[in-house]
C-alpha cells in the first residue's frame, strides 16, 4: 500500500467518499425513477417521513414565525415606524426562503437521523450483506423509497410549515404590536417566481437529505457505537447540505430571476 504522507491519504479518503456519495445518489435517483417497488413499502415510507414530522414542523415553524415577526416589527418600528408592510414582506420572505429552509433543517434532524439509524443498524447486523446475497442492490432497495417519500414530504411539509408560520406570525403581530389581521395577511407581494424559488429549494432539500443521510448510514462500521456516530454525521451533514443549498439557490435566484 502507498503509505505516503497524511495529506495524500486524506485526499484519497475525500475523493473516495465523494465518489461513493455520487454513486449512491445515482443509484437512489435511478431506483426511485424506475420504481419497481411494492406500493406498500412506499406508503409506509410516506407515513414514516411525513406523519411523524408533521406536528414537529408545524410547532417549530409556528414558533419561529412568531419570533421573526416580532423581531421584524421591532426593527421596523426603530427605523420607519410603519408596520403596514410587515405582513406582506414576511409572507413573501417565508414563501421563497424561510418556509422551505427551516422545514428542511427540521427534516434534516428528524428524517436524516431516522434514515441513518435504520440503515446503519442494518449495516451493522449484516442485513445489508444479506440483501446483496439475495441478489438485491441495497442502495436502490433501501434508499429509493425513502428518497421519494422525503422529496414529496419536503414540499408538502414546507407548505404546511409556511402556513403555520404565517398564521402564528400574524397572531404575534396582532398581540404585541396591534397589527390588524387584515393588514398582516396581505398576499399581494408574493409573485410566481417566489413560489418557484421556494419550490425548487424544497425539492433540492428533499433530495439531498435522504441521499446524504443514507450515505452516512451505509458507511456505518463498528457495532452500536457505529450507529450512533452515523446518526450524528447524518444530522450534521444533512443540515449543512441544506445550508449550502439554501445559499446556492438564493444566490442563483438573486442573480437570475431576481426573486431570491
Amino acid at each position: 500500500m502507498n503509505r505516503a504522507g497524511a495529506k495524500t491519504r486524506w485526499g484519497h479518503f475525500f475523493w473516495a467518499a465523494a465518489r461513493q456519495l455520487a454513486e449512491i445518489a445515482r443509484l437512489t435517483v435511478l431506483g426511485a425513477v424506475r420504481s419497481r417497488r411494492p406500493k406498500g413499502e412506499l406508503v409506509r415510507q410516506f407515513y414514516q417521513v411525513g406523519n411523524r414530522s408533521f406536528l414537529f414542523v408545524l410547532v417549530t415553524l409556528g414558533f419561529t414565525g412568531m419570533v421573526l415577526v416580532f423581531q421584524s416589527c421591532l426593527q421596523l418600528s426603530q427605523v420607519t415606524g410603519d408596520l403596514s408592510q410587515v405582513g406582506s414582506e414576511f409572507i413573501k420572505y417565508l414563501v421563497h426562503e424561510f418556509g422551505p429552509s427551516l422545514t428542511a433543517m427540521m427534516l434534516a434532524t428528524r428524517v436524516g437521523a431516522g434514515i441513518a439509524a435504520e440503515v446503519g443498524s442494518m449495516v451493522v447486523t449484516e442485513q445489508v450483506d444479506a440483501l446483496q446475497m439475495c441478489g438485491v442492490e441495497p442502495v436502490e432497495y433501501l434508499l429509493a423509497p425513502r428518497f421519494f417519500a422525503t422529496l414529496v414530504m419536503a414540499v408538502v411539509l414546507s407548505v404546511f410549515g409556511t402556513l403555520s408560520a404565517i398564521l402564528l406570525g400574524g397572531f404575534a403581530a396582532h398581540q404585541t404590536f396591534h397589527v390588524p389581521y387584515a393588514v398582516f395577511l396581505d398576499f399581494d407581494k408574493v409573485r410566481l417566481v417566489d413560489v418557484f424559488t421556494g419550490f425548487v429549494k424544497a425539492l433540492a432539500y428533499g433530495a439531498a437529505i435522504p441521499i446524504v443521510s443514507g450515505f452516512c448510514g451505509l458507511r456505518t462500521s463498528g457495532g452500536s457505537e457505529g450507529v450512533g456516530w452515523a446518526t450524528t454525521r447524518a444530522v450534521v451533514f444533512s443540515s449543512f447540505a441544506v445550508i449550502v443549498l439554501d445559499f446556492l439557490i438564493s444566490a442563483l435566484a438573486l442573480l437570475t430571476w431576481q426573486a431570491a
Binding site: R110, E118, S224
Partner: peptide, 21 residues
C-alpha cells in the same frame, strides 16, 4: 445498536424543538 440510534434521534429532535421554543 438500534436503541442508540433512536436515542440520538430523539435527543436531536427534542433539542431542535426546545431551541425554537
Amino acid at each position: 445498536a438500534v436503541g442508540v440510534g433512536r436515542a440520538v434521534n430523539d435527543a436531536v429532535v427534542a433539542a431542535a424543538l426546545l431551541i425554537m421554543i
